[in-house]
Amino acid sequence: MGLPTFDFFLKKETPCELLARGDGHGSFILVAYGQAQPPRDRVRLHNQAVADIHYVVSISEIVPGFEELPLPLPNTEVGLHSVTDALGSYVLWPRALVRLSDEVSGKADRKGKKACSPQEGRRDEVEKENVFMAKCPLITEIEVVQGLSSLCFWLHECASDVDDEAIIEIQLSHHQFHYFEDTSTFISKVDIKEFLCGEELNVSMIQTFMRLLYKSLIASSEPMFGWLCPSIVRDDSCLRNKREVKEYLNASLKACSRLGYKIILLPYIEMYAS
């Protein structure tokens, strides 16, 4: 199962779901529907600064019961305090609380129909509860999400759309890492979350990065980079399988030399470092 496509850099007005924090830790509530606007030259909206961590959104429909919910960024200067005040207008909404869903986007593509009309947008409570579960952000700490770089935020949005129990398989070429045959590494949502939160860098994430870098550089006319697998030469593997690791290093380094590689990339992971 691969990651879904997510266009962080909006090129056109895009249907969206607007969320707010729920009562429980890590819970989010769908409060409104609208349209996220692509970045423009303007740096202010209603005299408010438009930061990278916000989308400019127009609100087209409010979920019943949330009409008087305070806006995440109210603007007293123009009288925008609640979600109802912003109906039909443009406001700032934290990107971490904006969901660009395929379901809503599909409705927007139908000629002559709005992204989510009041009639189409009504869902019973059970359906809404299912939507909340499916679209819960990977990281629930808004401050952490807002501190992510644009590319890390893209990764966060992709991972948020993956099923919680899903395991993502990444193919690893034997040509790159000098295996006897092609193999795979596997990434979970937990691995991605730990990476984005700065808690842990799993070896599978490093292998995936190396794989992407390899594919990016392989088009080069002159071979320059050799690659050794960080999973094979990690310190715990060296302690348990000294002979196998030594054989792998000897064979791989000879292959890199034979192929004319000038630089060899080998991330080394210390699991048992004191």
Rank of each mutant, 00 (worst) to 15 (best):
A86Q: 03
A86Y: 07
A86K: 01
G88P: 04
S89P: 00
S89L: 11
S89E: 01
Y90F: 15
Y90L: 13
V91F: 09
V91M: 08
V91D: 01
V91N: 00
L92W: 07
L92M: 07
P94C: 08
R95V: 14
R95A: 14
R95P: 05
A96S: 14
A96Y: 07
A96F: 12
A96P: 10
L97A: 06
L97F: 10
L97W: 12
L97T: 03
R99Y: 09
L100G: 00
S101K: 02
D102G: 07
D102C: 12
D102Q: 10
E103V: 15
E103C: 11
E103S: 08
E103D: 02
V104C: 09
S105H: 04
S105K: 07
S105N: 04
K107M: 10
K107Q: 06
K107I: 12
K107H: 10
A108L: 06
A108G: 11
A108T: 04
D109I: 13
D109V: 13
D109H: 09
D109K: 09
R110V: 15
R110Q: 05
R110N: 02
G112H: 03
G112R: 00
G112C: 11
G112P: 05
K113R: 05
K114C: 14
K114I: 15
A115V: 11
A115Y: 13
A115M: 06
C116I: 11
C116S: 08
C116Y: 06
S117E: 00
S117V: 12
S117Y: 09
P118S: 02
Q119W: 14
Q119T: 10
Q119S: 12
E120W: 09
G121W: 13
R123S: 13
D124N: 08
D124G: 04
D124V: 15
E125H: 07
E125Y: 13
E127Y: 12
E127Q: 09
E127K: 04
E127W: 08
E129V: 10
E129N: 11
E129M: 11
N130P: 03
N130H: 11
N130A: 12
V131W: 12
V131R: 01
F132L: 07
F132C: 11
M133R: 07
A134E: 08
A134Y: 06
A134H: 04
A134I: 08
A134M: 10
K135R: 10
K135P: 02
K135A: 10
C136S: 08
P137L: 12
P137Y: 08
P137N: 02
P137E: 00
L138C: 09
L138E: 00
I139A: 01
I139V: 08
I139P: 01
T140N: 01
T140C: 06
T140H: 02
